[in-house]
Simulated assay, not measured.
Amino acid sequence: MTHLNGKVTLVTGATRGIGKGIAIGLGEAGATVYITGRTLDNTNSEISGSLKDTQAAVEQAGGICIPVTVDHSDDEQVRLLFERIENEQNGQLDLLVNNVFSGVQALRENQRKTFWECEPSLWDATNNVGLRSHYIASIFAARMMVKRQQGLICTISSWGGMSQIFSAAYGAGKAACDRLAADIAVELKPHNIASVSLWPGIVGTEQISQLADEMATENTPDPKNSVFTDHYNWESPLFTGRVIAALTSDANIMRRTGKVQIVAELAQQYGIVDQEGNIPPSLRSLKFLIPAALPSLRKYSSLIPDIKVPWSLLLLTTLKSPQI
């Protein structure tokens, strides 16, 4: 796949996880991929992943990768990042993927606590390098894209913006990500620039895999979390990357602007498969929801129809994320 040859893209927070998978997916399609993160070389064995690791994977997939060390809590570093891209690429930026998120450790440290038992600092730990950094990056990206009257901004969000998972700070942040994508879409539409919010499913990142292993070894595992521990219907990080590559080359992308899009549903529409050749079901599909609620039915999953639950009813589902 080389349909993104000549396209300039930026993925924030790409040392590991979904960000790394997105960068590889764009590389597969032939894009030039700028990636950001705080770790250039992995010199600490306790830290999984680095910008150079991702760069090697993107180049192996066929793309051009340019790693840039950036702390997204520092607005000046972000400004300089976009200034560099503008100078190096003659003002061209076709895609921004707002992915960077640094709240995982804080969420894990406050697991099983109510919001009032947590320190107020949990809000900043969850939403500073996350929601706020998405807003800042979108500003600088829009300034470049408006000059060329084209572009796409994808903001990685979560169904946590609709249904309570992890914490109140997390949920509020993800709901705000969805609203951010929708509101900037209104202002960008006259300039032929699209903005979408993307919901991946359960993605088998390094951290989620570690979490699943921890839950699987618990003395009293919670049955409701079994969907997270047996890898059922997991998506790879590359799956989201392939979908974003398809979005970037979609000539009719403006029909999606301002909307929340579920990664698995876009994959079905574009005919995209995951790295194992499968297409995971949408997280609002009966094929996903019924086995998640009733693990005993998973062996009959092939018989469950792939019917999408309306958004209004999705609020009533019992699907919950594990405590982290």
Rank of each mutant, 00 (worst) to 15 (best):
V8R: 06
L81K: 06
K147P: 08
G37C: 04
I18T: 06
R84E: 13
G201K: 04
G30N: 03
P223R: 01
N87I: 04
A29K: 06
G62D: 02
L152V: 15
D250S: 08
L238C: 01
Y232I: 01
I324Y: 06
S50E: 07
S236M: 00
V129K: 00
G171A: 00
I136Q: 02
G37H: 05
L80E: 14
V100P: 03
Y300K: 04
E88N: 10
Q269I: 05
A185G: 11
V196T: 03
G130K: 09
S195W: 02
V203S: 02
S321H: 08
T9P: 07
G13V: 05
H191N: 14
R38I: 01
P322C: 07
E86M: 06
G151H: 01
D53E: 10
G19Q: 10
R255G: 13
N87L: 07
K7N: 13
Q77V: 05
G17E: 02
A31T: 13
Q207D: 05
R84D: 12
L180Y: 04
R132I: 07
I202Q: 04
A168Q: 10
S163V: 13
N87Y: 04
L283F: 10
I290H: 12
L266M: 14
T126G: 11
L152M: 09
T217G: 00
A106K: 11
T155K: 04
G91K: 12
I208E: 07
I307S: 11
N128Y: 13
I35P: 04
A172L: 15
K287P: 13
T229F: 09
A23D: 01
M162D: 12
A168W: 01
V97S: 14
R179V: 10
T12R: 09
S302Y: 06
E276F: 12
Q207T: 14
W234C: 08
I304G: 11
S249T: 12
H191Q: 15
S102N: 06
K259R: 15
D75E: 13
A175Y: 01
A29D: 05
L315F: 10
G62E: 05
A292P: 00
Q149S: 11
G17Y: 06
F239D: 05
N5D: 07
A182E: 14
W123F: 15
N87A: 15
